[in-house]
Design a protein around this nucleic acid. Sequence first.
DNA 1: TAGTTTTAAGTTTTT
DNA 2: CTTAAAACTA
Length: 754
Amino acid sequence: MEYTVPMREEYPFYLEPLNTEQRRAVLHTGKPLLILAGAGSGKTRVITTKIAWLIREQGMDPRSILAVTFTNKAAREMAERAILIEPRAGEAIMRTFHSFGAWFLRRNGNLAGLDSSFVIYDDDDVVSLLSGIMENAPKPEVKQCAHNISRAKDYFLSPSDPLLASIDSRKKFRAIYASYEERMAQIGNVDFGDLIKKPVEILRDQPEVARRFRERFKVIMVDEYQDANVAQFHLLKELCGPDTYVCVVGDDDQSIYRFRGAEVKNILEFPDRFYGADIIRLEQNYRSTNPILKAASSVVDYNRGRLGKTLCAEKGDGPLPVLTYLPDQDEEAKFCAEKIESSVKKKETEWQDWAILYRTNAQSLGFETLFLRMGIPYRVVGSLKFYEREEIKDALALLSFLVNPRDEVNFRRMVNKPARGVGLVTVDKIAETADSYGGNLIEAGRNTELTQKARTGLNAFFKVIEDARALLDGEKDGDEKKSPAKKKRKGLVPGTGLSACISKIVKDSGIAEYHETRDDVTGNNKLNNLQELINTASNYPQTREGLLEFLENIELDQARLDNASQDTQNSVTLITFHNTKGLEFKRVIMTGLEQGIFPREDKRGEELEEERRLFYVGATRAMDELYLTSCLMRRMYGKTMPMQPSLFLREIDASCLQINRVVRGFETGQPMARHSFNPYNFDNDKEKNSRLEKSSGWRRGQRLFHENYGYGAVMEVKDSEDGPVVRVRFDNGKETRFLSEYQGGAFEKMGDDY
DNA sequence: TAGTTTTAAGTTTTT
DNA sequence: CTTAAAACTA
C-alpha cells in the first residue's frame, strides 16, 4: 500500500490527533504494557492506532496480532476503525475471549476429546442437562448449581479442585459438577466456561500446540481488561511466550461484571503478573463536560481499593446534571418523554442523541408503552433476547441436534414437539440404549424396541433430520417440489444458502405449523420471528460448516439478531446500565435512582462498590447533558411501594448537581437546596390519607422502634375490616404490618430526622 | 398423555 | 402485573 499523504513533523499523520500520553501508548514496545484508560479517554483510538502502527511502521504481519475484547460489538468496531487507518488490519484476529475460545477449540478441541462439530450450550441448556443429573431437585436449586458450575469455570476450578468449596460449600456440589462434566463430555458439546477453560488445559497439556500459538501471535492486546476473569487471565498467560508483546487496556472504576467472575485483581496485579510492565495513564477525557465528570467521579470516590485517577475534561464547563424527584414511574416515563420530545421539536437534538438508562430490563416496559403511544421512536438494547424465544430455541435445537446426534438435551426438547406420540418413557428408553451406541441417539432410536405409535413418530422425526442433513451434505433432492399442496398456508419463504435448509427443517418438522396455530390464539408473531431467523442465515453457505458457524455466531452474539429485528436508525435508546459500556450519547437520563432499585437493597461492601462503579459507567456515557430521576413511589409485583432516594444521590458532590421536584407532572421550577427536599413529605396526598393517619395515629414516613426488630419507618397506612393497618419496613429490610388499634403499643414513635 | 386451568412465585446485571 | 410451574381434566 502506497501512502501519498505527506508526513508532517516526525510522526506518521495518523498519530497527529493523539495527545502525548496516547502517542506514548501507541509507540510503546518491548515490555508488557498496562494502559489505565479513564472513561472517554480515547482508548479504542489508541488500540486501533497501535494495531495500524505495528503493521505500517514495525512491519508486523497482521495475522500475528491478536486483539481480544468482551463484546462482539466492540470487536467489530475495533476492526472497522483499525481498517480505516490500515486496510491490512482486517487480517488481524479481533475477537471476543469466547469467540477466540470457540475458534481455538474447533481446531484443537480433538486434543481434549472434543469433536469439531460441537455446539455451545447456553444457560438454559445447561439447566436442562443438570436437571437430568439432579433428579427431582427443585428448579431453583438446579439453577443455583448451574450458576455455581459456571462460576467455578470462571475461576478455572475443576471438580477435583480443593478450592471448589469457596464457590459452593455443599459436599455434594463436587459430585454434581463431576457428573455434569462427564455428561457434557458424552454429549460432546461445551458451555460458555469451557470456551475459556478447555483451551487453557490444552495449551498446558500440549506444549506443541502452545509453541505454535506463541509463535504465531507476536502481539496480544486485551480491551476492557478489568472485566477479565481468572480463567481468561490464565488463557492470556498461556498464549504469551517470552517474546510476546502484551498490552492490556482497562479502567478499574468500570469493572462491573464481578457477579460473572470478573476479577479487578487482574488489573490491579498486572504489573506483578507480567514482570517489568510499564503503566501509562490516559486521564484526558474527551467525551463529557466537567460537571458530568465531577458528579460521576464524586460517587466512585467513595469506593476503597481503587487505583485512583484524576480525569480532566477537555470540553470544559457545561450545564449541571439535573436531578428530578417524581411521584411515580408513570410520571417518570412522562417526564422523560416530554423532555426528549420538546428538545427534539426545538431542533435542539435528534432522537438518537438520547438514552434512557435503567438498572433492570423490566423497567423498560413503562417507557416502551408510553413512547409507543406518543409516537416517539425508540430501540431497546438487549432485553428480551431474540434467541431466548421459544420458537427460536426450538429451531436452533433442531439444528443443533442435526449437527450432533449425541445432543440429548436438544433431542429431548424437540423429539415430541409437535406431539408425535413419543413420550417421556420412550425417550428415557432411547437415552439408556444410547450408551451402547457411543451416545448416538439416532442409532439408539433405530435399535430400540418401541410401541407402534412411538416407532411411527420417532421415524417421522428422524426423517426430518435426515432430509435436512442430505441437503447440507450436498445431495440436491427435489423434495421441495414434492409436497407443494401441503404448504398452502401463508408459509415461510425459503431464501438462499443456509436459509433454505433451515426453512425446510422448520417446516417439515411441523415447528412452523405448531407456532403458527399458536399465533392465531395468542396473537404473537412467532412465525415472523422464525422467518427472521431464516433470513439471517442466508449469508452462510449451505454446508455443515456453515451451519456450525451460524449456530456459534448466534450463541456468542445475540445482539446481532436483536438489532436486525429493530429499526435502529434515528431513535431514543432504552438500555440497562450494564449494556451502556463503551457507548456514548449527547444526553443521558439515568432513571430509577432509588434505594432497592439502584443500588439493589441487598448490596453491601464489595458489591455496593460494584453498583457505584455501574453508576459511574452510566453517568460518564453523557457527553453534554445528564439527567437523573428518582421516584417517591414505585409499582412492583403489582403493588405500589414507597421508595427512598438512592444512596448515590447523596454522594454526588453538591456543587455539581441541580435538584428539582416534580409533583403530579408539573415542575415547581424552583431549584431546591440540597437537603430541603423530604421525599416523605406527603402534604399533597389525598384527604383520605390524612384522615387515616389521624385515626390510626400513624403517618407515612414516621420513624419508629420495636423491641425485637429495631428501627424502621412507616411505609403505608391502610384501611381494613379490623381498622387501620400500618405497614412498616425496618432498617434491616424486613417488613411487617400491624393493626394500630390493637398492636400499636409495641411500636415506639421516634422523632423524624430525614 | 396432551392440553388446559389454576396457583405460586418473582426481577439484577451477560459472554 | 407477568410468567413459570404444578395440578387437573378430557
